[in-house]
Design a protein around this nucleic acid. Sequence first.
RNA 1: UCCUCCUUAGCUCAGUUGGUUAGAGCAUCUGACUGUUAAUCAGAGGGUCGCUAGUUCAAGUCUAGCAGGGGGAGCCA
Length: 465
Amino acid sequence: MEHIRRNKIADLLKSKNFGSEVLVKGWVRSKRGNKNINFIALNDGSAIHTIQVVAEVANFPEEVLKLVTTGSCIAVKGTLVESMGQGQSVEIQAGHIEVFGTADPETYPLQKKGHSLEFLREIAHLRPRTNTFGAVLRIRHAMAFAIHKYFNDQGFYYIHAPIITGSDAEGAGAMFRVTTLDDKNPPVLPDGHVDYSQDFFGKETKLTVSGQLEAELGAMALGLVYTFGPTFRAENSNTPRHLAEFWMIEPEMAFYDIHDDMDLAEDFLKYLIRYALENCHDDLEFLDKMYDNELIARLNEVVADKFVRLTYTEAVEILIASGQSWEFPVDWGTDLQAEHERYIVEKHFGKPVILTGYPKDIKAFYMKMNEDGKTVRAMDVLFPKIGEIIGGSQREENLDALLKRIHEMNIPEKDVWWYLDTRKFGTAPHAGFGLGFERLILFVTGMSNIRDVIPFPRTPKNAEF
RNA sequence: UCCUCCUUAGCUCAGUUGGUUAGAGCAUCUGACUGUUAAUCAGAGGGUCGCUAGUUCAAGUCUAGCAGGGGGAGCCA
């Protein structure tokens, strides 16, 4: 085939350049027709839509069209024409077809009919070829890009926090061990424990559960920074909202207090959702139609509405005054349960809510204490349908106050000496938050299981692909 | 990890109080059809009923264990 530049299907679908010679390459979604004419729906990933390739049977060797089956990969050279049929405005009159890769119809798992999301999870290596996962993955990309763009435009610097960590003081849950020791015959200490001083790093190491502490180090020099990387939690969580490997965005800002922190979180989320609405229209429309008829309306509402801000104490008062009966009782000092958060966000206000001023005993050691000595300057952004999407706080910048909390919570000082140094040398008020990337994608796509918004989910008992 | 439901053809599912040869739609294959829209019409092939044990004359169906999956909860992002 003569070498001309490949056209992207997304561009051709918008083109009015009828009569021009075009070259498309992509995967066949379906073929139909009769003994005179074949219609091939071709997709190349550039858009959710397929382009219709029209092949006059007489113009092609029988062997070629026989190989054009659902799932096969082909190149088509032909003429872009105005469609004679209903349902599409442009199509390609095929002049030449080259088959790159066949797909045996007897064994190719994807059919030109709908599949359950559960089935597609079992063939995660092929599911990007479906409309749904094409849409989700394009939106996922757009959100990752928009995150970097937002922070860059706001003068933040992207910090690469380490993935392997020797500190387990991050306090965010169970961790995966990283080791090169011989699993059959590891060196042991006299007391029977494994001797990690002989391991690769000379100490016991784990996969990170948060880049926050390192982000704080960056903020104490560069002012405004963020991390965006993979995060690992070895919790045995079996829910549609948890992964063992997920991606997290953690901005950290010098000289921000808790109110600046909330302002940033709200502006950031609205920017991202607006970006999706403006740049992922076709994909969102597909997801809205197929999975969640209120998706686009809900995204528009979140962008338009001001988030409600209230304190934990006020939330507890609302819950008690509601007269609802709860599976878990509401009383000041215990953490809010999913049912409580859902009531506040979905029933009482019907819009995103930022809760602040949590009791110190249910929050992490690094959060700044309020003047009351009972609550900390934490803030959680709660979204309809998915609950907590952001968790953040103003950090304790006072060395003595921080040391007091570390001792209260039995965190070994020697493990966090470097973190404490930031408070010892040129400490500064600062704040930050963490955004679960997949939780954001859940909200933006309207999907209901987090395993369907990451290409290859890692969950308890599943590390396939 | 706890509670609960599910596992039958490639996919989505039906299968009665346990009873002869386990069904349907879609997909696939063959044929028909001069432009189709998840094309249509006709025909055909396709099953270790998740696995293991048990109860019974007889198990897809009942019981137990195990595995995998869904939903809810906890932990959290």
